[in-house]
């Protein structure tokens, strides 16, 4: 008895697109202008096309004292120079994007904005991948930090982080002044994510310049909430909520610091870090993230194979 099983699909919304990076032709110096987001389906749900292939961003910083020793020991001296590190990452680890944290701004009493500008410029000179820049986390220096990053990257179509409820005006202003996009981070809640996007929209940041960061807790430390927050955000967008129809970036920044990894047997610590990042990232892309971030270089290869297997080598489904 032949029968036909239908695959159910009942939504109409579309995910917006955001472009990161500008090529020479477009007035920047990146090797490519990457488009993230787009598509009108949940990954693999309802038989819809899985959308664009998610991308991998590698995270590094300008002050390695505030970075996990698991990574800095593996990377070696190169971590002491952001430009060198950027060049090595691009050549050796080959992620799709770079995410650069200005951890130096987190030092108490930080005021050296001219150095900050030079650091961002150097990273841009030594690398060609589209760049995400994470500025300060202190409202007192937000305004200067973001203006400085924004200006240093003018024309490069950076993705600037991070706007939060209560401190979004500085980063939004810098993004609008210098043609960048903004990461909007809210604490693991679909409603708070939406609220921040509305606030940004009303400040003048258009939807195609916003990337949602729903805050990804590390596996075992909040990921249970993050996973559903991502699903809900994506789902709301597909049901037509335009204030949530932006691509998502997911970064479980705590993965390398949590107890399970930190206290792992020294011989297994590296592998533990990689598995922790891998399981989180694979789950994040299936929950709808367009960009997943990692800090351990060895996570990139297995993660890329998984994503290739899911989306096909060329992207857009196999």
């Amino acid at each position: 008895m032949p029968m036909k099983v239908d695959i159910i699909s009942e939504w109409t919304g579309e995910i917006g697109e955001v472009t990161i990076g500008a090529t020479k032709k477009e007035g920047g110096s990146r090797c490519a202008a990457i488009v993230i987001g787009g598509g009108s389906g949940f990954p693999f749900l309802g038989g819809s096309a899985p959308g664009r292939k998610p991308l991998i961003a590698f995270e590094f910083c300008d002050d390695p004292k505030l970075w996990s020793p698991i990574v800095t020991e593996l990377e070696g001296d190169v971590v002491n120079d952001a430009g060198d590190w950027a060049a090595r990452v691009e050549e050796l680890h080959r992620p799709d994007l770079l995410r650069f944290y200005l951890t130096s701004t987190r030092r108490r009493g930080f005021q050296d904005f001219s150095q900050l500008r030079r650091t961002v410029e150097e990273v841009l000179e030594r690398s060609t991948l589209p760049l995400i820049v994470e500025g300060s986390i202190d409202p007192a220096i937000d305004s200067e930090t973001f203006l400085c990053c924004g200006e240093a990257g003018e024309g490069e179509r950076l993705l600037l982080g991070t706007a939060e409820e209560g401190r979004y005006r500085s980063v939004a202003a810098a993004a609008m002044a210098y043609g960048h996009s903004v990461i909007a981070q809210s604490p693991i809640d679909v409603n708070l994510a939406k609220q921040l996007n509305i606030l940004l929209r009303e400040t003048g940041v258009p939807h195609d310049r916003i990337v949602i960061d729903p805050y990804t807790g590390a596996l075992g430390y909040g990921f249970e909430y993050s996973y559903s927050a991502m699903e809900r955000i994506r789902f709301a967008a597909l049901k037509g909520d335009e204030d949530l129809a932006m691509p998502m970036i997911s970064s479980a920044i705590d993965s390398l610091n949590i107890k399970e990894v930190r206290e792992a047997d020294p011989g297994q610590r590296g592998e533990m870090a990689v598995k922790w990042e891998l399981y989180t990232a694979v789950s994040s892309v299936i929950a709808g993230a367009s960009v997943v971030c990692v800090r351990h270089p060895e996570t990139i290869v297995p993660l890329r194979s998984a994503i290739d297997s899911l989306w096909g080598k060329t992207g857009g489904g196999d």
């Binding site: 809640d189 409603n191 708070l192 939406k194 609220q195 509305i198 204030d243």
Partner: peptide
Amino acid sequence: MDEYTRSTFLPHTDL
């Protein structure tokens, strides 16, 4: 609690 979070916005998160 979900509704409460949605309502801590003027007038409401679902405009």
